[in-house]
């Protein structure tokens, strides 16, 4: 099985540790991972902000970079959802202009092979225990796109529950959005922060040592609030916990 890592532009620039953790987990499970160097971005920020035309070259670039792999694994549910739900529509809207030949066919070939990390581990590899150990109490934040757009359900919780020494501490009002929302976080900063403050209060009420989620974007928002308030709670991507003990705390 040829596995490609789709790191996402956001993690590439801001959270390379997350990509390294994904590589480590998969390698420990006996799988080689390649990093197609031509990859850049799935187009989500442009798409969700209304800049649809700017997305089409990115869709084109995505299909070119990831053509020929059996599985394309990403540590971002929100980017996986963008590819799965919108690349085909964008390619179809481009079909009339013929600006990018065969784009629809290429999207149709690549898209079904894109997996969010927990989907790949649980559904493709059939695992919940990845052999990690993490002796801490952990609060897990269910990101909206992972649950509502991608439908990954409780896969992350099942993976976390199998980690040696880890105690999951349930977050109240877990279905509530943290308020990140991409450019919403800056265009409607006051509302975003109000939502984030409530989320932080719910997370702190768990008394957990570590906050984790399957997506770094929400964690950056919640972590930014925690960091500013001087909270000692550590913030880690799920992959960093699955990769084993000892990763750096991140904000």
């Amino acid at each position: 099985m040829r596995i490609a890592l789709f790191i996402t532009c956001f993690n590439d620039a801001l959270f390379p540790d997350v990509g390294q953790a994904v590589v480590r987990v998969l390698r420990r499970l006996g799988h080689e991972v390649e990093f197609p160097a031509a990859q850049t971005c799935c187009g989500q920020m442009h798409f969700n902000s209304g800049y649809r035309d700017a997305c089409i070259p990115l869709v084109d670039g995505f299909t070119a970079a990831f053509a020929g792999y059996d599985a394309i694994v990403t540590p971002s549910p929100s980017c996986a959802a963008m590819v799965r739900h919108h690349h085909a529509t964008l390619a179809a809207s481009d079909a009339a202009t013929r600006a990018h030949p065969d784009l629809q066919d290429r999207v149709a070939a690549v898209t079904p092979r894109v997996y969010e990390l927990t989907e790949f581990l649980v559904d493709v590899l059939g695992l919940t225990d990845v052999g990690a150990s993490f002796p801490h109490t952990v609060a897990f934040h269910r990101t909206c796109h992972s649950v509502r757009l991608l439908g990954i359900g409780d896969r992350p919780e099942r993976l976390l529950a199998a980690v040696d020494g880890l105690t999951l501490s349930p977050v109240p009002r877990a279905d509530q959005c943290c308020g990140f929302g991409g450019t919403f976080a800056v265009k409607n900063a006051d509302t975003s922060i109000a939502m984030g403050d409530d989320k932080v209060a719910d997370i702190l009420s768990t008394g957990a040592e570590v906050l984790t989620a399957a997506d770094t974007s929400c964690l950056m928002h919640i972590g930014g609030l925690l960091s500013r308030s001087g909270s000692p709670m550590r913030v880690m991507h799920l992959a960093e916990i699955l990769a084993g003990p000892g990763p750096e705390a991140r904000r």
Binding site: I7, N11, D12, A13, L14, F15, P16, D17, G19, Q20, F35, A185, V186, K187, A189, I193, G196, M220, H221, G223, G224, L225, S227, R228, R250, R251
Partner: peptide, 16 residues
Amino acid sequence: AWLRRRDLRTPARESF
């Protein structure tokens, strides 16, 4: 707008 209430992670020293 971001920094008013939230810290921001600096871009990594070395990208992935």
